[in-house]
């Protein structure tokens, strides 16, 4: 059934290297491959989760996909348009199709801007909407994310972490995107708030057919939202597939060790997990 839906995001062979040392002439002498040959597809109305530990390249992949960084090789295609081939102003216009929600709700909102300006920015930039029309539409968006019109003229510092993340989601929705890239979007939140925001994302997906690229290190969270999972390790995709398959019968040793290390509240799940991984290979990398 899922195969019938159109592909809204396709990454092909994404590769990114960062220069870690330069010589006196400014030439790169040392490079770090952050992402190597990463390919995946995301279909309309579905959620693809990119999981991995720190340094696995998942956040760099998110920045490549959203064109905040240029890949050294590979292409990104969004709703049939190849973003990696677009000029600056064409890319700017296309950006509304794919929006982003960041990890730290305290850093991702401009502290000098009132909510109405932050959330209304995509409306202004893409449609030139301002004034009362803007206020009305921002108020609608705030209500969709569980806030209200009373919050229009408030500043970010007046909100809790969960509320800020709702504001960030409202801003992403304002552009009317097909895809939302959520980079560790609930990682900084407390358990109870996290559940609220996850439910909100799931509701939005059900109501408006959004596709999510969900980047997270938290395998419990990913389990609750993902249709497909892609596991990254040292810049490469090591395993990908339908979520149930990855969680119930992982093939790669790395995926197994990752799943085995997740602390579980439920004793029964702990026993299941012990059966899943006969021998955990959790060797820590030194230095």
């Amino acid at each position: 059934m899922s195969t019938a839906r159109e592909v809204v995001l396709r990454a092909t062979g994404l590769t990114k290297r960062f220069t870690t040392r330069r010589n006196v002439l400014g030439r790169a002498v040392e490079r770090l491959t952050a992402v190597e040959d990463v390919s995946f597809e995301l279909r309309a109305g579905k959620t693809l989760a990119l999981v991995g530990e720190s340094g696995s390249g998942k956040s760099t992949t998110a920045r490549l996909v959203t064109a905040l960084e240029k890949p050294d090789a590979g292409t990104v295609e969004v709703c049939g348009t190849e973003w990696t081939a677009l000029g600056r102003s064409a890319l700017r216009r296309e950006r509304r199709r794919m929006q982003m929600v960041f990890q730290d709700p305290y850093a991702s909102l401009d502290p000098t801007k009132m909510v109405v300006h932050t959330v209304g920015e995509p409306l202004l930039v893409h449609e030139g909407v301002r004034g009362q029309e803007r206020d009305r539409r921002v108020a609608d968006l705030l209500e969709r994310v569980g806030l209200s019109a009373r919050h229009l003229h408030r500043y970010p510092y007046e909100f809790s972490g969960g509320q800020r993340q709702r504001i960030a989601i409202a801003r992403a929705l304002a552009a009317g995107p097909d895809i939302i890239v959520a980079d560790e979007a609930v990682s900084a939140l407390d358990v109870s708030t996290q559940a609220q925001v996850l439910n909100l994302l799931l509701d939005l997906q059900r109501d408006s057919g959004l596709a999510f690229l969900f980047i997270s290190h938290d395998l419990g969270v990913v389990r609750q939202v993902a249709d497909h999972v892609a596991v990254m390790h040292r810049g490469r995709l090591v395993e990908s597939g339908p979520a149930d398959e990855i969680y119930e019968s992982p093939r790669e040793a790395y995926t197994k060790s990752l799943l085995a290390a997740v602390p579980e509240v439920s004793p029964s799940r702990r026993r299941e997990r012990a059966g899943l991984v006969t021998e955990s290979s959790t060797g820590e990398v030194v230095g």
């Binding site: 905040l68 730290d104 850093a107 991702s108 930039v125 801003r171 552009a175």
Partner: peptide, 14 residues
């Protein structure tokens, strides 16, 4: 280098 700058860029700001 603040995230909100990236966030605004991702929205499509010039």
């Amino acid at each position: 280098h603040e995230v909100f700058i990236d966030a605004s860029r991702a929205i499509g700001c010039t």
